[in-house]
Design a protein around this nucleic acid. Sequence first.
DNA 1: CGACGGGTTGAGCCAGCTCAATGGGCGTGG
DNA 2: CCACGCCCATTGAGCTGGCTCAACCCGTCG
Lengths: 245, 245
Amino acid sequence: MPTESKLTRRLRHGARLSERDIGQLETISASAIDIVASTDLIKQHDVAKHAHIILDGVACRYKFLRDGRRAIVALLLPGDFCDLQDSIQQKMDHSIATLVDCRIAKLDKQEITRLLESSPAIRRACLWATMVEEATLREWLVNVGRRSSEEAVAHLFCELDARLGAVGLARGHVFYLPLTQATIADVIGISAVHVQRVIANLKDAGLIMLQDRVLVIPDFASLAEMADFDETYLHLGNTVGPHEQ
Amino acid sequence: MPTESKLTRRLRHGARLSERDIGQLETISASAIDIVASTDLIKQHDVAKHAHIILDGVACRYKFLRDGRRAIVALLLPGDFCDLQDSIQQKMDHSIATLVDCRIAKLDKQEITRLLESSPAIRRACLWATMVEEATLREWLVNVGRRSSEEAVAHLFCELDARLGAVGLARGHVFYLPLTQATIADVIGISAVHVQRVIANLKDAGLIMLQDRVLVIPDFASLAEMADFDETYLHLGNTVGPHEQ
DNA sequence: CGACGGGTTGAGCCAGCTCAATGGGCGTGG
DNA sequence: CCACGCCCATTGAGCTGGCTCAACCCGTCG
């Protein structure tokens, strides 16, 4: 099945899905709509009416401080839920925006409930996704709080490689990196110009190649080593699905 | 009821609990045991066998980097669950340790299941607690990534005031602060020496008083203002329970 | 009484910041 | 088709918040 959606590919890592489950997910994926870059899906203080699922492109959760500083607190990649739990909740404590053109499925509360009640495997997969998201937040906190900027950027690249690889968007440690330096800066908590210098250093050290948004990690082990990257927190372990092709 | 446990007090913020629910929670609370400071409850890479609930004292989630740097990624206060979801999960991606002497309830998987299935209100409260934890992680990420060290420490104090207040451990913006400067440093991602200077500045500015571990916030609004503290993310809004005495 | 865990203080250093200017790619309007 | 503007990356120069190292102090506990 060459057309299996990113959502299915992602959730396969969280639970063993039946044919019927996959059918469900594919139906949802098929309903996705296009949304252009830099659109807010939900704004802080709004009440979430639907959940969003990214099928193509990249979005982020972010917060602004009064003086305009921005912090990005999550990157949402294909296969990721944006607000499974948030949509149950009351007021959003952050905003969500697309970073590039995206294809996104929207589910209202009813559809979410129906999805969650349709099968234990799907429920398990969604719970898994939530836990992975929380674990990722913790790892980012380490990244921002205790790693040098070079380690932090390297760590981010390792994480993206793993996460994109898990949905088939990275092969052989080569992938399209859809982030501007300013975006990376707001993820790591440093300035945009410093991102530039850090990337230059990583290039000089031969740890990465990056041109026209294509990132190549020639020796993943070295990069992971300098970044202190340990992918346990992504919990991709129980990969069940086919590593076809 | 002067002896209502911190667990009950905390979960009241997440759902309207019945007498029966409270009975459950009080039974659990009564089974708590004492654990001395600086004990690991669970270590990274272990598989969680039980969930822990803090009833007294403070614990933290933390991670070490290879070179010994430490990052604290959560503070666990009375009424907090340590690992509701983790205990469903496989390998821990972080450790949990007590920071001071604690009273802690341990639940094995069976007891967790029984608790969650005992009532929808309790289920809702636990879901709420999980979402608040995630929201707190996001706010910390902002703190560490985009706030100055003074703002960050001030923000932490505001958060602790709100969280401790929610379980009756802070009154009139005065509370016992059970953290060493080194601990605060690992929360904020700065050095212990610098914590000292930051606290000195906050004192000089008249924003806090701190002596013998007792923190007084004479003018909460001012501190919150400089810290850019907005307590939405703690979702204490739907307080239902009695604000007695 | 010595050791140890915290807090406090000083001095010098450096990672990462700000400000500023430059250049390329691309879309839009004339 | 060109010109303009905008977004993004790049580079230089000087500044500073927070760091490290190193004392020293105090209270507590064995």
